[in-house]
Design a protein around this nucleic acid. Sequence first.
DNA 1: CTGAAAGCGCTTACAG
DNA 2: CTGAAAGCGCTTACAG
Lengths: 341, 341
Amino acid sequence: MPQAKATIYTVARAAGVSAQTVSRVLNGTGQVSEKTRAAVRAAIEAQGYRPNTVGRSLRASRTPMIGVLVADIGNPFYARLHRAIERRLAGSGYSLMLMNCDDDAQIERRQLDLLRSYRPAGLVIVPSVGSSLDETDLRAFGHVVSVSRVLDDVHVPAIVTDEREAVAAAAAELLALGHTEIAMILGPPEASTTRARAAGFHAAVAGRPGCRGHARHTDGTRAGGEAAAGELLGTHPGVTGMIGFNALVTEGIVSAVRTAGRACPDEVSVIGFTDAGWMTLYQPAISVIDQPVEEMGALAGRLLLDLAAGESVDPGPWVVPSTLIRRGSVAPPATTKESRT
Amino acid sequence: MPQAKATIYTVARAAGVSAQTVSRVLNGTGQVSEKTRAAVRAAIEAQGYRPNTVGRSLRASRTPMIGVLVADIGNPFYARLHRAIERRLAGSGYSLMLMNCDDDAQIERRQLDLLRSYRPAGLVIVPSVGSSLDETDLRAFGHVVSVSRVLDDVHVPAIVTDEREAVAAAAAELLALGHTEIAMILGPPEASTTRARAAGFHAAVAGRPGCRGHARHTDGTRAGGEAAAGELLGTHPGVTGMIGFNALVTEGIVSAVRTAGRACPDEVSVIGFTDAGWMTLYQPAISVIDQPVEEMGALAGRLLLDLAAGESVDPGPWVVPSTLIRRGSVAPPATTKESRT
DNA sequence: CTGAAAGCGCTTACAG
DNA sequence: CTGAAAGCGCTTACAG
């Protein structure tokens, strides 16, 4: 029959030992005789005692909790990231406190304050676009790892994918197929990811004399991607290949291509960024630069565990490579095909 | 210059008052003279003091945190639910601790134990399929609200949508269009949602003499939905309409219909459950029973806030209605159309 | 309007 | 191998 309020003291009394000994049994620290251990276990069982993390955390001045602050958990990228971190941390005793900031620097700061009030052991952060956080803010947190987006002038371990190279390879593949005018529909210009992906795109185009590359910034949403892609298809009918900044923008591109009455891949090839279930359902299936979200999350969890254990961690940036998955949405441009026929 | 370790005591000393007065200023409780208040505020500012929720929680025997336990945050339904609860709780001082249980009753129990060790103020739970939780487990949590799935014989406020009615209406619409053999690809038989949706489906079919309804259980994934739908299309070529249990199963149905070489909606009409971005991108756009996820999450947040404030809350179940969104994937069956032509 | 004392549940030195 | 004391940061009675 579980006791109304079991604590280490009620357990200690029932077992005929001190609270300290109960603590030792609970944590497996120090030496406890087998007999005493058994008595304590029996009392724990009898009272239905459950440790109180709050008491422990207060004494330790540190809570076994990792904060996770992302822009929007509704975005599958962040949802998968959370799940991957949680899996890596399973069994470690650490819990995750997830917070959204809607990519708003003010909300980000507020959420961080709230989070910090719990004195968490660490933080995984995908900084907001236009984040105002600096090294001081993050240092106040103790252990921090940034994922995907990086903060300028802030030296915390960062986990990223090889955005520049991956986009460059994808763009190069379009160009090698014979496309001479291609476009990249980007995210917000302030995001580090936008800059890296844009750089890869431009580098690939620059490597092909006679080819032209268009880049457009958006807010990273489907609507934003659709508007930018639609505008581009209208003003630059020569564009025969498009790369999307993320899964949502890619949805927008696909929609715009269809609305413009252009066939994919016959008239316009499309490559997405970050795989999504619908991409294999759509016809044609969408080729995509597949970001290793699970690996990035697992690595974030590992680095934080190392940091919490007092080990020093290389600031990186830790680069986890993306892979180009070739599906049906990429083909040589129509003109090339015709000239071959 | 923020102090290394600011507490209410360091603030109190700097302001020349007692810790108790600092607490009063922080919480807006009791009477504090304007002058004293200003001095305290100045000291807080000067030291960069941030309240420690752990200390407060220990004293209060309760943490301003709501646990959220769901099957899989990778499922957009749960991600949207989390976001909706978080939005409703914004500014309330409560944080959310999100946990996955992979729909595994054992993991569910373990996660709940971990969560409980924080002494949270409440819990939002989507019980796992085959959950072993009973009223005692949940009562130990204090304030609990269940969402979407309900636990048998457990009396906690529940938030659901009108699954039975919504599915019945969707099925009835197919039948009214002239379909005489339709199918529902369900989730796991143990889930309360499966039972409710199946009941709605069977009721609609029973209301139409001469019509036939097939129901198949799956694990609720895309692969499961695809296998079940594929099998059904093969063994029962007369099926001209299918309803999916959730967004993933609907992906599977759409894929299976295409693999079977059947045109949608000309040969097979499809209706999904829970709207998703790809459903408007796909051709034809997928008609769907749209679940009011945001409202359900907001309501869960509100009920928990009420409960935490000591108010009594109606156990409900609180029913938030779903809406049938008509898009391109539903049409009269081919035979009917031919006979009209 | 303000303060001194006690205690929330635990672990960290320190002693034995 | 085991225990008594102190203290983590805060708020709750209780006094004035």
